[in-house]
Every structure is written in C-alpha cells, then in structure tokens.
C-alpha cells in the first residue's frame, strides 16, 4: 500500500493563511455584521435581511451609486482612449522612449493622499496655481463651492493620476507587435487608420480588457484622493460610494447598514467585471 504524503499541506499553508486572514475572514465578518443590529458593549441581535432591504431602497445609496457610476464612466471614457493615443504617440526606442516611460510612471509612484493634497493646493482659488490662474482669466472657479468645478477637478486629478496605467499597458501591448505586421501593412498600402483598426487594436484587445477592468475596479475603490480633495463636497455632490460607506460605518458607527452596503457594492463590482470580461473574451480559443 502506498502511504500518502501529507507534506503538501505545509506547502499550501502559507497561502491559505494569507488569503484567509486577508480576504475570507474579513469578508465573512462583514457578512456577519450585515445581518445583525449592533449596540455598544458588543451586543448583537439578528436582523435577517433588514439592512439589505433598507440599503437597496435608500435614496442616499441610489444617489451615491449613480454618482459612482457617472464618475467611473467618465474616467474610463477619457482615460482609455487618451491612454492608447499617448502610447501610440510615444517613441518606440532610444533615449526619448526611456524619458517618456519614466515620466509616465511618475504619477503612479506618488502616494494617493499626496495626490489628493497636491491637487487640493493646486486648485485652491486663492493660492493654487490652477485655481488662481483660472480666476485671473475671468473664469469663476471654486471647487469647494461649485459642484461642477468639484467634479471637473476630481476627474482631472484621476485622469492625471491613472491615465499612465493605461499608457504603460498599451505601450507594452504595442511593443509586442512584431515589426513584420507593420511591414506587411505597408506593402499592402494600408493607411495609418487601417493599421490601427486591423493590427494594433486587435492586438491590444487583451491588454485593454485588463486595463479597463483594473480602472473600473479601482475607480469603485477610490477613496483617499476625493476624501483629501473635496471630502465629498460641496454638500454631497462628490460623495462616491466608498466615501459614503466610510461615513456610515465610521462616522455614524452603523455597522449593520454599512456591512450590507459593502456587500451590495462588492456584488456590483463583481457582476460588472464578470459581464465585461465574458463579453470581451467571448468566442476565443477554448
């Protein structure tokens, strides 16, 4: 008879522990909170689906969800085409290619709260370079008072911070296209548009799928930068989902509703990502 080697368990143990403490246990805690009412002194009462019903029918949740979707849609619509365009325009080799890559990587290296603080100061109407310049040009701009200005600043900040990611991914995708494709297209007499449409874009498909997924999920998770920049204001106009969540959970200490809301929020991200990924990879090699 063969003895089974149990040593394998030791080898997977670190990963199991890491994932357990990092993801599974926190998520289960949240599930646990989401069905209970919390009082001080660690008193919990089972409430069933009450919080879910409350969250799903609350106007506040609808508003922040709509705000969130609007934000995500706008930044994707700007960052993806802009990122691809910059990647196409970047030199392929030589000194300037390195310079461009370093410049592009820079925003990604800056800590998120610093990005928020930078843009906050940059956009202040009285002392900020951007805010003061705009006002001096006769444009009435104050992101702490005007909802539109707050949105524009928020989006400009996110575009500045994250377009680089799309650029770097697309650049890597473009660099992997063999030169022979471009030669073949030149011999055929294909236009620059045709080269983009029939060679570069299809070859970038996988990279862009990943880029859109990453940006989609990240935009839902965005917290630090808008928190530092606008704090969700003026009023609630830039209170995105995560900001709202933290307000409920920590500001009001309503753990139950906050937990139910995070789960709904988690399922939305999962659902969107799954649909998008399935559609993008449909009909490919099994």
């Amino acid at each position: 008879m063969k003895t089974r080697n149990q040593k394998a368990w030791f080898l997977v143990a670190p990963v199991v522990l890491l994932v357990a403490f990092n993801a599974v246990i926190p998520l289960m805690t949240v599930v646990n909170y989401s069905v209970q009412e919390t009082f001080g002194d660690n008193l919990f009462f089972f409430e069933g689906m009450k919080w879910f019903e409350e969250v799903l029918s609350s106007e506040r949740f609808h508003d922040s969800l709509i705000r969130q979707l609007k934000f995500t849609f706008i930044i994707l619509a700007i960052q993806v085409p802009l990122g691809v365009a910059i990647a196409l325009a970047m030199p392929r080799k030589g000194f300037w290619a390195s310079v461009c890559l370093v410049l592009m990587a820079m925003p990604l290296l800056i800590p998120w709260n610093v990005v928020g603080a930078m843009w906050n100061i940059f956009a202040l109407p009285d002392i900020g370079l951007l805010g003061k310049t705009l006002n001096a040009m006769g444009i009435d701009y104050n992101f702490t008072r005007q909802p539109f200005a707050a949105w524009a600043t928020l989006i400009a900040m996110d575009v500045w911070h994250w377009t680089s990611l799309v650029v770097l991914l697309s650049y890597a995708g473009l660099s992997s296209i063999p030169d022979a494709y471009y030669q073949a297209a030149r011999i055929d007499g294909a236009s620059a548009w045709a080269v983009f449409r029939y060679i570069q874009l299809p070859k970038l498909k996988h990279v862009l799928t990943i880029a859109v997924l990453l940006r989609f999920m990240d935009s839902f998770n965005i917290y630090t930068e808008p928190f530092v920049l606008t704090g969700g204001g003026p009023g609630n106009t830039t209170t995105l989902l995560s900001l709202d969540l933290v307000k409920i959970a920590l500001g009001q200490f309503d753990l139950g509703p906050a937990a139910a809301m995070s789960l709904v929020y988690f399922l939305i991200i999962l659902l969107f990502s799954w649909i998008f990924y399935t559609v993008m990879t449909r009909g490919e090699d099994k």
Binding site: P178, A180, Q183, A184, I187, Y198, P202
Partner: peptide, 12 residues
C-alpha cells in the same frame, strides 16, 4: 508582396 517567417495575418 512578402511572406514572413512569423505567420502575419490580420488577426480579427
């Protein structure tokens, strides 16, 4: 016209 070592076709 030219044919290469790699199989060059329009992918989509």
């Amino acid at each position: 016209s030219m044919v290469y070592q790699q199989f060059i076709n329009y992918p989509n």
